[in-house]
């Protein structure tokens, strides 16, 4: 969990050219003023890093803080592992 959060913070900092040491799980995405193209790059990097598909404009994912992003990615990973698990 912590590892995933660190990797996500690293991705966001790199793609949006932000200082990773200033990002916490409570940081609000709005405050970061991420440009739309950076956002697309961030989502792509997250998908590539965790091999998941992040749905577009999905109302099930309310992303306000970095914690929401980490939780969302965890959900996607769990869903994917659920799909991959052999059906008994």
């Amino acid at each position: 969990m912590a590892d995933i959060a660190d990797r996500i913070v690293e991705i966001i900092a790199k793609e949006a050219k932000l200082d990773a040491s200033k990002l916490t799980l409570d940081t609000r995405l709005e405050e970061l003023k991420i440009e739309s193209l950076d956002l697309v790059q961030i989502l792509f990097a997250i998908e590539d890093e965790f091999d998941v598909y992040v749905p577009y404009n999905d109302e099930a994912y309310k992303l306000e803080t970095l914690r929401d992003v980490v939780d969302g990615v965890n959900r996607l990973i769990a869903e994917k592992q659920g799909e991959a698990a052999p059906k008994s």
């Binding site: 956002l39 697309v40 989502l43 792509f44 749905p55 577009y56 404009n57």
Partner: peptide, 20 residues
């Protein structure tokens, strides 16, 4: 898909609930 402007359901221009 990668540029994230595509609707997964259908195209609903000017409508509330539009997704792309």
């Amino acid at each position: 898909e990668a540029i994230r402007v595509m609707a997964p359901d259908t195209c609903r221009p000017f409508s509330g609930g539009r997704k792309g």
